[in-house]
Write a protein that binds this DNA or RNA. Structure first.
Lengths: 189, 189
DNA sequence: GGTAGTATCCTAGACCCTCTAGGCAAACCG
DNA sequence: CGGTTTGCCTAGAGGGTCTAGGATACTACC
């Protein structure tokens, strides 16, 4: 029995790729073992259990995405930063639907995904610097922004916009413009 | 062996209640059979398979929610209608998280949930009557509205807003006001 | 290069969930 | 009241999760 050379990281990477191919819900310990030509039980030396595997995939995806967001936002501010931020999310979700789905699970506050999740919160806040908001307005704005983008991407990925002639790209542009206008003229009270 | 008197509808109803109690993901044929004090195999005379069961729960939830939305929106228009619509969704999701999760699955276009899903599309469109939009703007508005509300509710339910002092209710009100303002002053082009 | 130790992968097996096939009996219906 | 339907059953195959414990490929040290 030659050793395959599995490590937690290689398993996570393979699981992430598998998620994009067959859907995150179908990423099982068994499927992953099959992919490596190995018995199920062998994986449990590297991962705690199935939930742990999924959390690792989520952590990896969150890190990748945060890197892309940070890169694309570099040197931009205001509307450009907003667009870069939003488009990074949407593009990532389109290119890696399985990984994006992985990020949506209930992830434990002490799991491997906790640290990268905080990075996302910071990146989101950084967009709002240009828009001079009071601390409370900032919280509302973050929530609204996150909700809108996440909601749009989820529904688009789910296929909700496919049965209407108008291209999703147009609606997306309109949404971004609307968010920018809203942030610029945030209701005082 | 006394007969329990299961029907597809009673199973669906019980599955919906179970979903709210233990989470939609944990609603299995086995769990449902246990709940009725019956063997797993017995359920398959009433439902096609596990997927069918879940689709039925989704259909039931969609119908219930559409009824509530329609009731709460009756006689209202403009901002009142928008608020009634949005709050109906949010309240339903809060009171019935399992059922709300059921609605988010990929549901086949020919499954039991197809008809109620169309009702929701119609109800959403009816909100926009008051806001005089061009046909294309209407599509963009529906998408943006749906995305924002769905995104907000999903994130709130997921607990994303629990670790910040500001009450979610305040942010929700701000979001509704912002949506109303946006719809009232929809960007011409 | 031999040997001791460790990490990797294995077999075996328990448990849960899904679903099919076929049997028996309760309920209904003429 | 006897026949048919239908509801629930047992039996069992197949797949996923996970633990315990055994065997072997590698590593490191003498």
């Amino acid at each position: 029995m030659p050793r395959v050379g599995m490590t937690a990281d290689r398993l996570t990477q393979a699981a992430a790729e598998l998620a994009d191919e067959i859907g995150f819900a179908n990423v099982t310990v068994s499927a992953l073992a099959r992919h490596f030509g190995v018995k199920d039980a062998s994986l449990y030396s590297h991962i705690k259990n199935a939930k742990d595997l999924r959390a690792r995939v989520a952590a990896q995806a969150l890190t990748e995405l945060a890197d892309q967001v940070a890169t694309n936002m570099a040197g931009r501010s205001g509307k450009d930063a907003l667009a870069a931020f939003a488009n990074s999310y949407r593009d990532y979700a389109t290119q890696h639907p399985g990984r994006y789905a992985a990020m949506q699970q209930d992830l434990d506050a002490d799991g491997p995904a906790a640290a990268p999740a905080r990075r996302h919160a910071d990146l989101t806040r950084s967009i709002l610097h240009a828009y001079n908001l009071t601390p409370e307005a900032q919280i509302d704005a973050i929530r609204l922004l996150g909700a809108t983008l996440h909601g749009y991407i989820t529904l688009e990925l789910q296929g909700s916009y496919r049965h209407t002639p108008r291209p999703s790209q147009s609606s997306w542009q309109v949404a971004l413009t609307a968010l920018h206008t809203l942030l610029t003229n945030w209701p005082e009270d």
